[in-house]
Amino acid sequence: MMAVTVITIVLQRNLFSVVVLAGIYSFLMATVLLALDAVDVAMTEASVGAGISTVLLLGALHLCGGEEAKPLHRPWLPLGVALVIVGALVYGTFALPEFSDPLAPFRTHVIPRYLEQALAETGVPNVVTAVLASYRGYDTLGEVVVVFTAGIGVIALLRRVPRREEER
């Protein structure tokens, strides 16, 4: 179903349907994450991917019109580059440990400690929250700064226009 959605997105020329299909894709992705027991990520995907970004893209469409322009020339070179990269990535996956292999290196390094000690050390039953906010506090701080920077960037880019026109 996800593959069908993606192919439709690629073939579709009307950007409105592309935005709506991307929202559907996000919901499907959230279902997949739910099936993988990643409830926190599924929640984020459903609310950000399907909710907010759809609204923002529709707002952007309202500004710039709903039809995709015809490509100027045939995309053979980009297609070739993309295929080579896909090949390299697929080749790379052969060296990864098996899916759900309990002895994979990243499962024996810090994860057992997090899973066993998080409740005792932080008093927080949700290990995802414990890792995000406490063990990996620096990373989360960086993430928040990224969100902050994105907001500041949008403000800096878009603020001037209304001022000039409405004389506020």
Partner: peptide
């Protein structure tokens, strides 16, 4: 730990709400 996590999460929530709303206001 619990207290720290609480305030950190509160900070994340406040910034994310603000940024999302601000971007929407800007576009709309």
């Amino acid at each position: 730990q619990h207290r720290g996590i609480f305030w950190v999460e509160a900070g994340v929530g406040i910034t994310v709400t603000g940024v999302m709303l601000k971007i929407f206001y800007m576009f709309a």
